[in-house]
Nucleic acid binder design. Sequence first.
DNA 1: AAACTTTTTTAAGCTCACTTAAAAATTATT
DNA 2: AATAATTTTTAAGTGAGCTTAAAAAAGTTT
Lengths: 218, 218
Amino acid sequence: MSVAVENFVKAIYKNKHQDNLDTKPGTIAKKLRISNAAATDMSKKLAERGLLQYEKYQELKLTGKGTAMALNVVRKHRLWESFLFKLFDMSLHDIHREAELLEHETSDFLADKISEYLGNPKFDPHGDPIPNADGEITTKNTSIALSEAEEGKQYIISRLMSDDKEFFDFCAMNGLKYGNSLAVVKQFKNTKMTQLLINTNTILLNQDFSTIIYVTEK
Amino acid sequence: MSVAVENFVKAIYKNKHQDNLDTKPGTIAKKLRISNAAATDMSKKLAERGLLQYEKYQELKLTGKGTAMALNVVRKHRLWESFLFKLFDMSLHDIHREAELLEHETSDFLADKISEYLGNPKFDPHGDPIPNADGEITTKNTSIALSEAEEGKQYIISRLMSDDKEFFDFCAMNGLKYGNSLAVVKQFKNTKMTQLLINTNTILLNQDFSTIIYVTEK
DNA sequence: AAACTTTTTTAAGCTCACTTAAAAATTATT
DNA sequence: AATAATTTTTAAGTGAGCTTAAAAAAGTTT
């Protein structure tokens, strides 16, 4: 399958299950940096191929086949991220950038080899779950966004949900790393800021960041 | 640069420096399994881009820029082969197949990481030299084809020059592996066969295989 | 509800990387 | 050297994946 098609179904899947965005052609277009016209066009073609359901002016809905394709690409992406992170000590942003390309040129055979090598991990270095070879995500996500965390409690960082370089740079600089501990000191209701303590450092996060950092109770 | 372009300059480079074939558009077309017309077409376009010199009915000649591109792709291919071979215990044919895809989606940055991880190897598992980051091949190839080897002498396998699955299956079955030792027992002049001894086994090779297995004197 | 704004779709057109068919040139054969 | 066979080039056309511009529909504001 082509890169364009794989990225298209992946974008639909992620908008629906991850980024809490709608799946209308225009929204997908924005994410993929293509024109609305191109997205509408692609939608019709993929509907014919049985990868999604398309109805004028409505949200796109992946079929089972389309979902399977999306999960297959997501699996490869997250396996590559895990692998590169482990072996090469690359930043979260760098591994994302490389995985974005490699995911489309990786056979199922190689994906399984990588998975096996890593001990069939369930999460990647961002804390995102890795679908298994059958496209199933077997882990339940019990984590919450930092913006929803309770004052005074201890948490462990379980997910950094972004692919923005500046965000990752900020995280790296401040010890905000998958698996690390922190305490939520205060939630500022009006300004929607979250104050937390990590490694004896106090950090104040605005909503942009507190809603994409996920944690579980310690 | 597109996959098509990268494969085109790579094919020219390999025909010239490795496979001892000419570099006319038709010959490249055959290798890439595209029509002669497509190859002629591409030749003109790449000439305009300064990657090669094109003269009607003549062989194609890579420019410095074209050669650099070819070597960059070859470098990535051979680094991937080395890497996959080392980590995943994959067959020579399998690593080739995967590398053929990955080579086009690998940043220079990642290539350097892989190289560094492997200790900047000079040869891949086929015995092919790996160009450095500047596109230089610093090793001299002193090996000869088995078909040219002398009766009664001991050799070490230094290169398996092919990408054919059957050939690699044969090699794997018979201990014909990069770095292994063998003795040339007899060269049959008329039938162009080579008889050799490896691990107490006698093997008789025809010319198809004896010309693509390279060795150095022990 | 009418008017305005935004989004989506349709229409026409582009580039890339191919194809097949025919014409032209080269190479091989007698 | 003339003819036949092969190779290369030219010409015309295709599908994928885009674009911009205009038309149509949906959503928002007053």
